[in-house]
Design a protein around this nucleic acid. Structure first.
Lengths: 142, 142
DNA sequence: TTGAAATTGAGATTAAATATCAATTGAATT
DNA sequence: AATTCAATTGATATTTAATCTCAATTTCAA
């Protein structure tokens, strides 16, 4: 399913669905939450179908372009991604100390945003809300 | 004014208000919108009161800790900061067609976010809300 | 089968940010 | 004024994510 979508995307750009790209795609969808490029690379390295670090990064960018993967944020350390397929919308709270990401969803928040758009004559299609601070654990430390 | 606040902050930590730190503070407030550490360093370099790159980065972190400066976001290239003194918080609506940016502020939204943080045990310090879609003009076209 | 274009991977490169550490400064105390 | 010790500085080295390079390989249509 994801393969088909990705292949269509590649075809349209005159690119090919190689075994390395398939490997990356497969491992991307083996994560059920957020992941960093390096962790993705390590998973692939430890699987039977390999791809180099360069190919992992390259394919990741293609996957973002295709819409199958989203860049969630950029932490102090690295980019953070998640696959969007079959995911319902949510927002994020990001800890500035340990980098942990907490997902949340609020119907009220969604409605309020619609209201704000309406009163501004704006046709809102999507949004990103990122709350930064200290998570439950880290707020006790510092 | 900012000097006083910074000095108080430093004193409380047993640190000193050196001429290098004063130089950084001064140039931070010479920006009237967001800035990157490197641009800040260059401004200082071209001013009469100097500070090394290391000191610029170090002081910047202290300024964030003191609350006088905020880290707005982290782009592909670098961190982005802005001084908070005298600035009021707002969020953004960005048009995907013409790129225009509309600022808005909603008390309700702020309160709702606090509520969400509270119920998640998260100590929220800041947030970025970006609504994307079509502005008043562009929604009629497409 | 052939050839042009795309792709790969190993390693080099880039660049932001931090770490190192000897030399210097600040300021409180004697 | 001299002493003392922690804080500070700056030149440089280091770290590390991400990208770039480019020769070798693969893909696929003709």
């Amino acid at each position: 399913m994801e393969n088909k979508i990705f292949q269509n995307f590649l075809e349209k750009k005159g690119l090919k669905l190689t075994k390395e790209r398939i490997a990356v795609l497969k491992e991307v969808f083996s994560f059920h939450d957020h992941f960093e490029p390096e962790r993705l690379y390590l998973r692939i390295k430890n699987s039977d179908s390999k791809a180099s670090r360069a190919s992992v990064y390259r394919t990741l960018n293609l996957l973002v372009e295709s819409g199958l993967v989203e860049k969630v944020t950029r932490t102090e350390k690295s980019n953070v991604y998640e696959h969007t397929f079959g995911h319902s919308h949510h927002d994020h709270m990001i800890c500035d100390r340990c980098g942990s990401i907490t997902e949340f969803y609020s119907e009220k928040l969604e409605n309020l945003q619609k209201e704000i758009c309406r009163s501004n004559g704006f046709d809102g299609k999507s949004h990103t809300l990122e709350i930064r601070g200290y998570c439950n654990k880290c707020k006790k430390i510092k």
